[in-house]
């Protein structure tokens, strides 16, 4: 068996890759229930992480001209934003957790200088049904830690999540 190629940091100059406009997942013409997701990333000192590459992935909804993929750069205040279609519930998890339907969420990947490997987690959305039964949220016992994955509703179709890379209030990151 071959061994998976080792990860290396994305470094501070990843902006040579295209990202402008890639934070709008409707850019290829997808239509539907449009929402905005904003976030802010801070480090273990509370300082803004201003050079992150942030990507989201959502397998639902399955509609025309929707890739389910977006990329954004954090600004000097650590902020990022995405425009996307409201994610739908996702079929459940195989194996020992049973096939419980999962609450709507997007997968989140953060890559940055100082991160030797990508960080992956999910964003859930305040006010959605199913958080109490969600098989992934239910793996997190501490309510405060669980809350690190739930974006606050800031408007009819707007959500915001603060992400802490390290220390007090540290976001729950995943091994998949």
């Amino acid at each position: 068996m071959s061994i998976t190629t080792a990860s290396q940091t994305i470094g501070p100059y990843w902006h040579l890759l295209p990202f402008e406009g890639w934070n709008d997942l409707t850019r290829f013409g997808a239509t539907g229930d449009v929402i905005t997701i904003t976030g802010r990333i801070t480090d273990g000192t509370g300082a803004a992480a201003g050079d992150c590459c942030v990507e989201i992935w959502q397998p639902r909804p399955e509609v025309e001209n929707f890739d389910g993929f977006g990329r954004a750069a954090t600004d000097k205040d650590g902020g990022f934003s995405f425009t996307t279609l409201r994610p739908e519930p996702v079929p459940g998890v195989h194996g020992r957790l049973g096939n419980v339907q999962q609450a709507p969420h997007v997968g989140l990947t953060i890559m940055a200088r100082g991160l030797m490997k990508a960080l992956q987690t999910r964003i859930y959305f305040e006010g959605d049904a199913g958080h109490d039964q969600d098989p992934v949220l239910n793996l997190i016992e501490d309510p405060a830690r669980r809350a690190t994955l739930v974006a606050k509703k800031t408007g009819a179709a707007a959500y915001h999540l603060d992400i802490v890379l390290q220390g007090a209030g540290e976001t729950v990151f995943f091994a998949i």
Partner: peptide
């Protein structure tokens, strides 16, 4: 640069689903 960016908590092992 890892000093204040590397997470300190253990990663949560999550099962694989569609996402």
């Amino acid at each position: 640069s890892t000093k204040f960016r590397a997470p300190k908590q253990q990663l949560l092992q999550v099962p694989t689903s569609l996402t």
